[in-house]
Nucleic acid binder design. Structure first.
Lengths: 144, 144
DNA sequence: TGTAATTAAATTGTTCGCAATTAAATTACA
DNA sequence: TGTAATTTAATTGCGAACAATTTAATTACA
């Protein structure tokens, strides 16, 4: 009677699964708001970094977002096509591609500023629970 | 001086971002283990449901995983090619595709049973913290 | 100095993830 | 009963994610 061996393989006993499911569900919640400013979620978080930092290279952006050039290279090109950023090689080290926000990109910030508040109601967590969740997530990320 | 308006747009003030980043990082942790049994993470959680339920249709599988047929249809075909499941239309209602585990699929369970324990050390959370995280995540998922 | 090692970004190829549409089967109900 | 509405999967198209490889530039160091 050691069928209990398999209990660990049940979805309900997994921690990773709700993490994966929850992440996708919350990102989906952003969609109607992001559609209005013609950004995907990944483009949005990339713009968040650029709204704050104005200019950085692909590697630095990747460190902020935990994404590599395989994901970022095509994404950055799409942001350039939209006119939100510029791409140019560094003079000091031509291996580096400098991504810089444009005035058009800066303007988008104004349209995006209300999104966090509109999204806030999407979770039914209290302020304390949200802060707790935040710190637990960063505790895991920090170790990885 | 209301530059504080933009504080909400900083990555560090987002709850969704660490959720998104953490999910991807943890899934990445599964990769070396899942490579050994030739499954992707999504295929793995689909197999988890099948190890438990033996047989269900696409809709039911989708409800378990919060995924739709757009994601599942091609994934199920790949599992069939691997010989882990069979696909057949229901006699009662031909709209339903019944996905059923094969003996080959059952055998894989034996190889997978150690993965959860091997992964367990991937987070540096205590048992209490893990349970807390689990319940916070399901609280969000439940509402959505 | 010249070659080897390293670094940064881009590219390639595969698998999601999902919105929107399509096709086929079933159900509702006028 | 016959048509409309609904339901279920599959398909289409696009944008991530990511491993692995490639290309080009820079750095290390023999």
């Amino acid at each position: 009677m050691d069928e209990n061996r398999y209990e660990v393989l049940k979805l309900k006993n997994q921690l990773c699964f709700p993490l994966y499911a929850c992440s996708r569900e919350v990102v989906k919640r952003y969609k109607p708001f992001l559609d209005k400013i013609d950004l995907t979620y990944t483009q949005y978080i990339a713009m968040m970094v650029l709204w704050e930092k104005k200019s950085l290279n692909v590697k630095e952006l990747g460190e902020c977002l935990y994404l590599d050039s395989g994901t970022l290279s095509p994404l950055i090109k799409k942001l350039e096509v939209k006119g939100l950023i510029t791409r140019k090689r560094s003079d000091k080290d031509e291996r580096n591609l400098i991504v810089e926000i444009t005035s058009e990109g800066e303007k988008l910030k104004e349209q995006a500023v209300d999104i966090p508040m509109q999204i806030a109601g999407c979770t039914n967590l209290s302020e304390e629970e949200a802060m707790l969740l935040y710190s637990l997530l960063y505790k895991i990320i920090g170790r990885i």
